[in-house]
Design a protein around this nucleic acid. Sequence first.
RNA 1: GGGCCCGUAGCUCAGUGGUAGAGCAGCUGGCUUUUAACCAGUUGGUCGUAGGUUCGAUCCCUACCGGGCUCACCA
Length: 515
Amino acid sequence: MQDEEVPESELIRVRRDKLARIIDLGFDPYPTRADIDQTIEDVVAKYGGKSAQELEAEKPHVKIAGRILTIREFGKTAFLVLSEKTARIQAYCRKDALSEREWLLYQNLDAGDWVSVEGTVFRTKTNELSVKVQHLNFLAKALRPLPGKWHGLTDVEQRYRQRYVDLIVNDDVKRIFETRARIVRYIRTYFDTHNFIEVETPMMQPIAGGAAARPFVTHHNALDIDLYMRVAPELYLKRLIVGGMSRVYEINRNFRNEGIGYRWNPEFTMLEFYWAYADYKDLIELTEDLLNGLVREVKGSETVTWRGAEISFRRPFPKFTMKEAIARFSKGDISLNGLGDRDNLVKLVKKFGEHRPVTADGTEPPKGTPVPEIASMNEGKLLAELFESIAEEHLINPTFITDFPVEVSPLSKQRRDDPRYVERFELFIGGMEIANAFSELNDPDEQARRFQQQVSERERGDEEAHRVDDDYVRALEYGMPPTAGEGVGIDRLTMILTDSPTIRDVILFPLMRPR
RNA sequence: GGGCCCGUAGCUCAGUGGUAGAGCAGCUGGCUUUUAACCAGUUGGUCGUAGGUUCGAUCCCUACCGGGCUCACCA
């Protein structure tokens, strides 16, 4: 970055000089520990509610540490705002209350430095909770200056690239990741208490299966084989169901070699779980229960605001079939009847569908790569295409979409009453797909046929078509009980629950082009 | 990859075809209950990079680099 080109900028040099003076005063520049008896959070929690009179009577003695955020200086007095996590407290330093050595230390401090202070808690004239410092000690120097206190750190790129600076300055960032941790903790507890067992399955796979997506490729030297970063844990988790584990879940990273956008990061976190003896209708119940409970736990209410929209998690969530959603959100342009006819679907996709670029993937295709034509798409794909371009963005409140076509659902069980469709739903919130769930196809012969179908899709140029996994078919041949499975996007869910407009706000270190 | 926009001091931003300015931060001085503290003074920039037009470019043009939004692929 620019600092590496100018390693000794004036500001850094000044701070190095101050550090040298601090060492001259006999302070350890990098002490091994800090002598504290509580955190700033503790002090605020214990004394934040007490009045000046109560504190005057009690004179609580505390030893705390934190980072100096700002210094306000008054000659022989100063106020240091100390920060730790999202808690803040003001330290009041007086020359006559400190030793000469400590006062000289104070004079060589900068915003950003870490210090520990010992003193009594009181309130100033302006009623600010403060610590009257009796002893000041040095913990670490910030050689680089903090961003300005007025505007803070607003440069979007630097916020993501140097998240540590973002965290120092922007309290909201810490709160978002605290909320994210609470979300994950709630989900873990939910599944643990429902007798699911948490497992971990391979991130590096010889075949990237379980989702329609393009994978990252890597290489194992000793075996001299290419491996794929997983796009989903699905096929491994179902192998565990075959093995008799009955209820499993995994919260972990998936990797998809695709674009980056406000709701897409190349690596993202999914909850995926499988539940033997249940079907997709049971999953609807479970999903409503899980999310409703989660939102009430995290937000203390059944509604949240996201990007200015009110989103209600009140049960039951609305439910539409895919065709109903298309008809409903086409503003009368499309009737349910019109969706049964393939020729008509082609016309509709051409009219309402997103205009595809010349290439299928938006980047330079290898020479001779076939491009999927709307005219050659099967009926199911046309329907799904139409749904995505017409209905998806309107599904703001949590909404289940059911009756997916079998052609776009290679791992789902067909409906008994109409095998053109599968027992599957996706849950949309804020116009984003949050969950995808279905009754798992457990007929090995049918699964083999579906894989073959995907192969021909791939040959027709669909690079996201599912790959054949022979060992998975073999696993099914050992017998998998009726099972329902679901994946939930944790990052997107966190976006909704933290009112974050982009996925990069809920991922600590989102992927950036290296500099 | 396409479209639109952006890149000037550590931060946030002005600005002009004649080689730059403000506030904050920094530094110096003053100030023993302030909180965007205040007052006075002061340091600091090869104006993203490389070419081109021009007597002369930070400003105009081109390319490149980086970023944002958006579209596409996709969850």
